[in-house]
C-alpha cells in the first residue's frame, strides 16, 4: 500500500506546531499502525531528520500509553480498539491519514504526538483507592460479592487510562475516566466505606485539573477503546449527589 500521513509536529510544549506530510510506500496491510510509524521514523532518522515522537509501550492494547487522534477519531476508526492494535488493513491504498495528539487543555503537548496525562494520576491520588494498608486484609472469601456486581465492577476497572474519552469530548471532560473508578469501587463492598469522600474528592480534583464539564454527548463511550459504558457516569452522579446531600 501507498500511504500519505499528515502528522502534527511540535518541538516542545512552548513552541508552535504544524502539520507535515510524509509519504510511505510498500506498507503491508498486516502492519500495525504504530509499526507504520516505526517505518516512517527509520526513514526520517536515515535522512537525518527528527523522528516523530509518540507514546507507546505494550503494543497489545492494555497499557494505555498509545494516544493518537487518527482522522479525527481517538485511536482511529475501529470501535473498541487502541491505536497499537489498529492495523493498516483498516485503510486503503492511496489514503491520506491525518494524525494528531490528544487535544485538551489538561493534556498539554510535550512533543509531536506526546501529551502530558499526569492529571489523571493526580485525580487517582485523591480517592481512586480503598484505604487498606498491606497486611490488613481478611480472608478473601469472607467478602462475598454477587457475580453481576463483580462483573460490572470489572467492566469499569477495565479502563486503561489512555485519555481517549477526554480527547473525544468537545468539552475535554474526564467524566468517563473518573466515573469508571468511582463506579468500580462503589459497586464493591470494599469500596463503600469511602464512597462519599471518593466521589467528592475525585470530582473536585478533576475540575482543578482543568477538564471540562460533561454535557452527555456520549462521545467518550463511542471512542473508548475498552467500551466503558456511560452508565458509570450515571452511577458516579448518584454517588456525588449522595455525598453532597448526606
Amino acid at each position: 500500500m501507498n500511504i500519505t500521513i499528515k502528522v502534527w509536529r511540535q518541538k516542545s510544549n512552548t513552541s508552535p506546531g504544524e502539520f507535515k506530510m510524509y509519504s510511505l510506500s510498500d506498507v503491508s496491510p498486516d502492519m500495525s499502525f504504530l509499526e507504520m510509524f516505526d517505518v516512517l521514523n527509520e526513514q526520517l532518522v536515515r535522512k537525518g531528520e527528527d523522528p516523530v515522537a509518540f507514546d507507546h509501550d505494550c503494543r497489545e492494547g492494555i497499557c494505555g500509553m498509545c494516544s493518537m487522534v487518527i482522522n479525527g477519531q481517538p485511536h482511529g476508526p475501529l470501535r473498541g480498539v487502541t491505536t497499537c492494535q489498529l492495523h493498516m488493513r483498516s485503510f486503503n491504498d492511496g489514503d491520506t491519514i491525518v494524525v494528531e495528539p490528544w487535544r485538551a487543555a489538561a493534556f498539554p503537548v510535550l512533543k509531536d504526538l506526546i501529551v502530558d496525562r499526569t492529571g489523571f494520576d493526580r485525580i487517582m491520588s485523591t480517592g481512586g483507592f480503598v484505604s487498606v494498608n498491606t497486611g490488613n486484609a481478611q480472608d478473601a472469601n469472607t467478602l462475598l460479592v454477587p457475580k453481576p456486581d463483580a462483573d460490572e465492577a470489572f467492566g469499569a476497572a477495565a479502563c486503561i487510562g489512555c485519555g481517549a474519552c477526554v480527547a473525544a469530548c468537545k468539552n475535554a471532560s474526564a467524566m468517563l475516566f473518573v466515573a469508571a473508578k468511582v463506579s468500580q469501587l462503589a459497586l464493591l463492598p470494599q469500596g463503600k466505606v469511602e464512597a462519599k469522600s471518593r466521589a467528592e474528592r475525585m470530582v473536585a480534583q478533576m475540575d482543578d485539573e482543568g477538564f471540562g464539564n460533561c454535557t452527555n454527548t456520549y462521545a467518550c463511550e463511542a471512542e473508548c477503546p475498552k467500551e466503558i459504558s456511560v452508565e458509570h457516569i450515571a452511577r458516579m452522579n448518584r454517588e456525588y449527589l449522595k455525598a453532597k446531600l448526606g
Binding site: T134, A137, L143, V145, A150, A153, Q184, Q190
Partner: peptide
C-alpha cells in the same frame, strides 16, 4: 486477600 481488599475485581 490484600488484592480483594483493594477492590480488585
Amino acid at each position: 486477600d490484600q488484592c480483594v481488599a483493594q477492590g480488585v475485581p
